[in-house]
Design a protein around this nucleic acid. Structure first.
Lengths: 354, 354
DNA sequence: CTGAAAGCGCTTACAG
DNA sequence: CTGAAAGCGCTTACAG
């Protein structure tokens, strides 16, 4: 149907370069040993003809599809697009393309969609975003199909597949230290959604940093949130209404931190003059708010790049060649310093223990 | 390489059903006339074998790739993922898959990436998101390649291709009427980014609604914004500091409306008691803020579905069969009523003219 | 309404 | 280091 200009095939390139199709194929796949002179001839022909290999033919004939699948479930707003950014960057560099799909419905639907997805697209590998990556039945389906897969920030069953993550614990630990370095002793914390492992790790990092600095944290300084703006608003309202109001509030994500900022305004308090606020994630909101949030930049794009690289390298295709270091990729985070955190000079904290 | 279970091919299905491969192919493509009895036999065999056609083979042999491309440039946070949601839904229903890519860099890079994308993926059609869809050179490249494409909310050169959009003008008109119905006469407006057509249309809708209600709008009630939270904050600060403070503020998008809410708090004003605030888009933020925003729900997912349907239908492949009604698809918006807008009973407006 | 043949554009063995 | 042959799993004409 499609009115297309005459397709340039490997045959045309071969003729132009005066070699066989086979040789062209070898050059294109950075394969085997080809003499430099023929390699040059072939590459020139490719250039002149502006030749692009037909991906379908490659898929059908070979073992690789040059497609990588991205499957997700219900991630927070903007997470997918930020992830895609990094994934596409790496794909571009290596001739791959991303096929994206969302798994919806109940457990059975998700399993069926996963199976159909790998069967029809024949992707070389699949990347699973949280929380989909924590559904054992989905992982089993993928294993049965023989399709390699990488998980992003998984929470359970870490032995099930290679994965890429960041160190939530360490990040929260360092952020808490940052607050302490700035002179804060009365630091409140808003916990993330209880069904996510990251919430637990961030909370633990906070607690341990306080402990190693011998700072006490009264129970009323800990509030349970759910990663939503609304839950942050409720938590902040309680915290800011306390008689022993904290001088700093550490929210487990930026949405909640943004809510803390709003709540402070409602209470007639200035950020960071009256209360410092820090978040986690470095989403777009964090830097568009006023004051912009000191936060932890979650390296979503870098995690995507690492995942693509794992699949592309082919390491996942053979259990035996898969080394320990390929199994767990921890990507560095970054503590981003902005105006929402201010050094507290007067140590008027009522309960400073250290 | 990939350790896969023995692939079930069309041949297996044909044998099981006791027919030729050709007949199986016909059934699968809802093609031609096949007798009901053979159709049933084939479908049963497909079921029993859990057969999925190999998409690569289909692509190579046939004219369709069963892939649809999504190309974008630099859309606002969450726009892509929201668009994908709708697109994937429709794809699932018809055996298609989405191949996503981002065009980066300068004009030449974008053109080259567009060309390479269609050449290597052989997608059946491309969907272009704004603002990429307004680059003439990209459109030309696509035309030359013979790949059909649909644009989403284009701003220029509307004759260049079929497109899907919503009526920004009408939406702003209706929202303004909503404010007027609620008794507001002193209504301020924050304009969107000047480089986007939607900004112009929304502003015009606002002005015309006021005019047709014979309501005057002093120049100090109009502020230029840039669709960012920060620009909204600056605009709101000016508006709320006016001697003749408006009783309602209409921001051209939700991010700016959210900023207006924050600014109100900073000024010690309550929303909606002291000032009503309305936005545009209905992004996630709009309903997670407190108070949640009255806004216009932009039907991004529905626009995506319509675009997929256009490509899938094959209507775009033939200029002559393309009817006027296929060219411009306007999707309905929805005015979402929430707590940020309150009826103003006391008509204390100083300059009400009507 | 159904089928036998050819071919889509590559890559995988197998030779040399 | 290079090539001739076969085949990947489908669909497109062409017959009947």
């Amino acid at each position: 149907m499609k009115s297309e200009q005459k397709n340039i095939t490997i045959q045309h390139v071969a003729e132009r370069a005066g070699v066989s199709k086979m040789t062209v194929s070898r050059v294109l796949n950075h394969d085997s040993k080809v003499s430099d002179s023929t390699r040059t001839k072939v590459m020139d022909a490719v250039q002149e003809l502006n030749y692009r290999p037909n991906i379908s033919a490659r898929q059908l004939a070979g073992s690789k599809s040059y497609f990588i699948g991205l499957l997700y479930d219900n991630p927070s707003q903007g997470y997918v697009s930020q992830f895609l950014l990094g994934a596409l960057k790496r794909c571009r560099a290596s001739g791959y393309h991303m096929v994206v799909d969302e798994c919806q419905g109940g457990l059975q639907d998700k399993v069926r969609m996963t199976r159909d997805f790998v069967n029809t697209t024949r992707v070389d590998g699949v990347i699973l975003l949280p929380p989909l990556c924590d559904i054992p039945e989905v992982l089993d389906t993928l294993k049965q199909s023989g399709t390699p897969f990488v998980r992003i920030a998984p929470d359970v069953d870490l032995e099930a597949s290679p994965y890429v993550c960041m160190d939530d614990y360490q990040a929260a630990y360092e952020m808490t230290n940052e607050l302490i370095q700035a002179g804060h002793r009365d630091i409140a914390f808003i916990i993330g959604h209880p069904n996510q492992g990251a919430s637990r790790l961030r909370y633990q990092g906070f607690l341990d940093a306080l402990r190693s600095n011998r700072i006490n944290c009264p129970p009323e300084y800990i509030e349970q949130g759910y990663f939503t703006y609304k839950s942050g608003l409720q938590a902040a309202t309680k915290l800011l209404g306390l008689g022993n109001r904290p001088t700093a509030i550490f929210a487990s994500n930026d949405d909640m931190a943004a809510a803390v900022t709003s709540a402070a305004h409602i209470h007639g308090l200035s950020v960071p003059e009256d209360v410092s606020v820090v978040g986690f994630d470095d989403v777009e909101l964090a830097s568009s708010l006023w004051p912009p949030l000191t936060t932890i930049r979650q390296p979503i794009a870098e995690m995507a790049e690492a995942a693509i690289e794992l699949i592309r390298s082919g390491k996942l295709n053979n259990e035996r060649t898969l080394r320990r270091s390929d199994y767990r990729h921890v990507i560095d985070f970054e503590l981003v310093r902005r105006e929402s955190l201010r050094t507290k000079n007067e140590a008027i904290s009522q309960r400073s223990v250290g």
